[in-house]
Design a binder for these strands. Structure first.
Length: 259
DNA sequence: ATGTCGCATTCCATGCGA
């Protein structure tokens, strides 16, 4: 079973890229972030014509997440529990049926949090606390769970081209990374880190200042696996090449194969 | 290089978010 995640930075701008990815990589499940459109504007017909069911949690202008699946899928909730006042569309969850057993998949667009001296940063930390609470429930249920998405977290110095340049950024602050470790300490496995210790594996390159050409990237898109899912992990891959396409997203897909 | 995108609106120019 192949599960991928991709922050597309506007689904309407990236529809040709998305359809090409579905054709060439053939993921069973694809989690999308930053749709930047309302539900009604999501290109559902085109995606269904490619063979995928869609769960869409959109929002006008910003945010927005979706889960696409070519296997049977049941929605289990949109919006991250724990804060009734949070109206930002950053979380969708579903259970996908697979021959290897059902897998619960979440598509996550974790808040950026910059600048850290504004209320954006405590919102990010609160979101991470709520995500940890939700993940704890799912791990306790001993399900196969894959938390996939743009976490806006650089876990370690080896995940950034120049750690010093990111000191003080909300993606790399100690409090951010501490909470990410708390999440992992529930027993979750970072799929890429289960397969390689290599430095310099990135999933995002800024549009500005020739970041792609200079390989000034960061690794912030992750797939975190519960023990039941980690036991089925066969490989993890970053589809770096699409960053070189015409009119690309600033993020590339990351994917895993599960038995 | 403060270097790019994509969205929205007071709409063809600017502010915001990233």
């Amino acid at each position: 079973m192949r599960i991928a995640t991709w922050n597309v930075n506007s689904i309407r701008q990236r529809l040709p890229h998305l359809l090409a990815y579905l054709r060439s990589v053939e993921p069973d499940v694809l989690c999308l972030q930053e749709l930047k459109c309302v539900d009604e504007a999501f290109p559902r017909m085109e995606v269904e014509a490619a063979g995928y069911r869609c769960i869409v949690h959109g929002q006008k202008g910003f945010n927005g997440v979706a889960i696409l699946s070519r296997k049977p899928m049941a929605a289990t909730g949109s919006g991250l529990p724990g804060d009734e006042a949070d109206i930002q569309a950053r979380y969708a969850e579903a259970v996908v049926q697979d021959d290897g057993g059902p897998v619960r998949v979440a598509s996550i667009y974790l808040p950026n949090g910059n600048p850290p001296d504004t209320d954006k940063y405590p919102y990010k930390l609160g979101f991470m606390d709520r995500l940890t609470q939700r993940a704890a429930e799912l791990v306790a249920a001993e399900e196969a769970v894959v938390l996939a998405g743009d976490f806006n977290v650089i876990p370690e110095p080896r995940d950034v081209y120049d750690a010093a340049a990111w000191t003080g950024d909300a993606l790399f602050l100690p409090e951010t990374r501490r909470r990410f470790r708390t999440l992992l300490n529930l027993g979750l496995t970072d799929a890429i880190r289960a397969t390689t210790d290599a430095a310099g594996l990135y999933s995002f390159w800024d549009y500005q200042a020739g970041a792609w050409q200079r390989n000034k990237g960061i690794r912030i898109d992750h797939l975190l696996l519960s023990p039941r899912a980690a036991d089925r992990l066969r490989s993890a891959t970053i589809d770096k090449g699409v960053r070189g396409d015409d009119k690309p997203s600033d993020h590339v897909p990351v994917r895993i194969d599960l038995a």
